[in-house]
């Protein structure tokens, strides 16, 4: 990774650098950055596994209060890119920079989060809250996602959707400037999906939180004001939903998506590769892309 920020080193502006390059202040509270200042900056980010390049030169910026939907075929590298941004994987090249003030720069929600089943919701979140410098409020996060009444219920007694909300509450602990959500609505019913989108929209509007979420739900335009389309590790579209549709003369994002990545993609059983029938070529992007 060619991130030039130095973990732990004091910056000239009096802020301290987080390990992923974010800036933080020690007063325990975040002031939303100026709307014009990017919260997330990606410059030529690359990441591979062995000889396979999964994320290939991705550059973009995300400002405070923006919600960006990262879409793309299975194996296009969405999860890998999100894990790089969350600091779970180092980038092979390029720079990831998160500008934030507060005890925690990035809140992360993995795909289908699971927690220790015999702990209660409060116990689970308190554990994570104690990992944040200065200590943070669990109650606020519970209120945000509407789980306050279930605080004393064990995780094993929650539905899948409720567990997803616990995961989202966990991501909110420490009031991070950037939320990175990996398919936050996959396998959820429409009502729960709508509810999670509402929570995300409120966070962006009220707190100025920048949100980057990956999804296969192309109805996401009701919450996202940016669409990032990743195809074979490359960022091929980065625009508003309206502009994405208009540029491809498409009525819906689904049509625009298919116009961009092609119809008739099939996964070859056992090969770990994705074959594009129109293009007639193979790519191994599925092998480790959304790993």
């Amino acid at each position: 990774m060619t991130d030039t920020t130095q973990p732990g080193a004091a910056a000239a502006d009096g802020k301290k650098r987080m390990t992923n390059g974010a800036t933080a202040r020690s007063d325990g509270h975040r002031s939303p950055p100026d709307a014009g200042e990017p919260v997330l900056t990606l410059e030529g980010v690359e990441r591979g596994f062995g000889d396979l390049t999964v994320v290939d030169g991705v550059s973009t910026r995300l400002r405070a209060g923006q919600v960006a939907a990262l879409v793309g075929p299975n194996g296009s590298g969405k999860t890998t890119l999100l894990r790089v941004i969350a600091g779970l994987l180092p980038a092979d090249a390029g720079e990831v920079s998160v500008a934030a003030e507060g005890p925690r720069a990035v809140g992360y929600l993995p795909q289908a989060p699971r927690f220790r089943s015999r702990l209660t919701v409060t116990e689970t979140l308190s554990f994570y809250a104690d990992l944040v410098e200065g200590g943070v409020s669990v109650d606020e996060a519970l209120e945000r996602v509407g789980l306050a009444e279930l605080r004393d219920r064990r995780i094993e007694a929650l539905s899948g959707g409720m567990v997803r909300l616990v995961g989202l509450a966990q991501a909110l602990l420490g009031d991070p400037a950037l939320l990175v959500l990996d398919e936050p609505t996959s396998s959820l019913d429409p009502a729960m999906t709508e509810y999670i989108y509402d929570v995300i929209a409120d966070l962006a509007a009220d707190e100025g939180t920048a949100v980057l979420l990956s999804t296969h739900d192309l109805d996401v335009s009701r919450v996202a004001d940016r669409v990032l389309l990743l195809n074979r590790g490359r960022l091929v579209v980065d625009d508003t939903p309206e502009a994405v549709c208009a540029a491809r003369d498409a009525e819906t994002l689904t049509d625009a998506f298919l116009a961009e990545v092609g119809r008739g993609r099939t996964v070859q059983p056992g090969s770990g590769t994705v074959q594009d029938e129109e293009a007639g070529d193979d790519t191994a992007a599925a092998n480790g892309g959304d790993a």
Partner: peptide, 12 residues
């Protein structure tokens, strides 16, 4: 469960 990855996103 994926909790190890979550823990690693915290400052601890």
């Amino acid at each position: 469960r994926g909790e190890l990855a979550l823990v690693r996103t915290y400052p601890a």
